[in-house]
Amino acid sequence: MKITLKVWRQKSKEAKGEFKTYQLDHVSQDMSFLEMFDVLNNDLVKKGEDPVAFDHDCREGICGMCSMYINGRPHGPLQTTTCQLHMRSFKDGQTITVEPWRAKAFPIIKDLVVDRSSFDRIQQAGGYISVNTGGVPDANEIAIPKKDADAAFDAAACIQCGACVAACKNSSAMLFVSAKISQYALLPQGQPERKTRAENMVAQMDAEGFGACSNTLACEAECPKGISVTNIARMNREYYVSKLSSDNV
């Protein structure tokens, strides 16, 4: 199949970016979207042109590194990661516009590569349970209702790709942050630090410059791992209760 690609090219964080159009004539529909980019880049190098920089690693939908905004949707037309999207989802002759995630808290590094270290910093603010290695109780000492363990897993399935931020008109990170807060709030191990965690992670989220939640649910619709907005409601609860009842003045 033939494809016309409009790709955002930007030399560096400071540089001004623009769209460049590329024509690909021999695209197989069995190719993954990233393999189509491999072909493009191979052609570009052959022609002596700078290949398109893009983030990717595991290419099996779990590392969360790939991050392309394809035809107006994060990760493209399917609710999956960019690496799991295949060309059979597109029509012969179609024009595909590819942009980086756009958010103030995700500055562009080059072309389609953005800096998501803000997500790491939010977790450093409290996304952990303070236990040292060794000296912990036997794993079966604490019984956890299956329902709670499953709900915690559902939240923990987040791959930190940032599609929620990319999809949100406010560039809000609440789906991501709420998934992290929820995982620990649902488990008995997370209780001792529960209140401080919610307060600190939300404070860091705000400090990074993410927007507020308008409950448009666009994040949930685009999340490749199906993280539910129920988590956002839980985070809100956790945060209000913590602010009103914790000892942190």
Binding site: K104, G209, G211, A212
Partner: peptide, 25 residues
């Protein structure tokens, strides 16, 4: 604040799946 969070450059193409009213309150 939400405008600022989006950064200076918007998307060229947008196919938001959410309800129109939720985005235009």
């Amino acid at each position: 604040r939400n405008r600022a969070a989006r950064g200076p450059q918007g998307y060229a193409v947008s196919n938001n799946t959410s309800h129109w009213s939720s985005r235009n309150m």
